[in-house]
Each structure stands twice: as structure tokens, then as C-alpha cells.
Simulated assay, not measured.
Amino acid sequence: MKIGVTGGIGSGKSIVCKVFACLNIPVYDADTRAKWLTNHDPEIRRAIQELLGPDSYTESGVYNRSYVSSLVFKNPDLLKKLNEIIHPAVGKDTDDWMGKHSDAPYVIKEAAIMNKAGANNNLDFVIVVKAPVDLRLKRIKVRDETRSEDEIRAIIERQVSDEERDSIADFTIDNDENAALIPQVLKLHQLFLEKSTE
């Protein structure tokens, strides 16, 4: 069984995934793998340089994230073309990884961008991790001191809305520092173990 975990920046989806990992559930971090692939996959590198020019990689050959961001975030068409290079490669990488973990009762795919389960993906269920925007802002400021509040708000505004995320959720986890997080994860873990044996 394949479970997606998503949520806005600062919602705590990575913490949720760490709890699942502590329960010996394999976790695929799509964003980290996407970064790795853009730096190490020669086909992706060639396609990105064709799309965005040689400055999309530094002289030492590292993906120039800040330069690429400065181009694509004000140009939705360019962002779409960049995603059309990276997303299929991450999709294939995910499938390969899931194949290697087929002995697990279920696996988790963590990603910032996700469709509803079964909509152009091979996910069985999607968990959305939720937290109020003010709390998310506070967490990101602590985590990334170089970003201003305006920058963080701009990132949140560019991401899909909470309403859009709610529409794809089979399950939600509240990470608002009022509801205890671990019991919510344990409850879902138990449910997924039961479903994996049906």
C-alpha cells in the first residue's frame, strides 16, 4: 500500500514522516530526491540547461537553485516546463524505490505537491498535515533565519491553498501544537496495517 503525505511549508509533514520512519515504515522524500536528481542525473541537467541556460548550474556543476528560482517564479510557463523535466524523473525514481520496498506493509511518499490518490499517481491514500499559517511562519523563521517574513508569506501564497489540499485529503493530521501529534500518527499506522492485510 502506498500512502502520500503532504502539507504546506512549515506544516510539519517531515516530522510526521519521521514518526512513521520510527515505526519502521519506509519513507520516500520526493523533494530531497528531486534535489539529488537535478544534481546527479545527466539527462535532467542537459534538459534544464537547454531550457534555462548554462547559468542554471554553477561552475562547479551544482544546481543553481537561487538563479533558477529567480527565473521561474515570475514565469509560470517556464515553471511548468521545468516541472515537466523534473516530475517524471521523480515519478520513475519513486516507482523504482517503491519496488525495492515491496516487502513493507506500506510505504510513505512525502511531497509538497501531490494529487488526490489515484489521480495520475499510484497512491492509495493521501494524508494532509495541517497547521495555522501564523504557526507555520514561526516555525520557518526558526528553521531558516535567512528568510524574511515577506519571503515566507510569498512562498505560502505560491503553494496550493489549504482548501485545495483539504480536497485531496483522505486523512488529516493536525499539527497545531494543541492536538498531540504521535497518537494521530499511531492511529493511522494501525489502520494502514489492518488495511494492508485485507
Rank of each mutant, 00 (worst) to 15 (best):
K138C: 01
K138G: 00
K138T: 04
R139W: 01
I140L: 10
I140M: 08
V142Q: 05
R143Y: 06
R143V: 10
D144S: 13
D144Q: 10
T146Q: 12
T146R: 12
R147Q: 11
R147M: 13
R147S: 09
R147I: 05
S148Q: 02
E149M: 06
D150C: 11
I152D: 03
I152L: 05
R153G: 09
I155H: 11
Q159N: 07
V160K: 13
E163A: 15
E163S: 14
E163D: 15
E164A: 14
E164Q: 12
R165H: 02
D166H: 08
D166Q: 09
S167H: 12
I168S: 00
A169H: 02
A169C: 04
D170T: 10
F171R: 04
F171W: 05
T172N: 05
T172W: 09
D174A: 07
N175D: 03
D176L: 01
N178G: 03
N178V: 14
A180M: 04
I182C: 07
P183H: 01
Q184W: 03
Q184H: 02
Q184Y: 02
Q184G: 02
Q184T: 03
V185I: 03
V185S: 00
L186S: 06
L188P: 04
L188E: 03
H189E: 07
H189N: 13
Q190Y: 11
F192E: 10
L193K: 14
E194Q: 15
K195C: 11
K195T: 14
K195L: 15
S196P: 14
S196F: 08
S196N: 12
T197W: 09
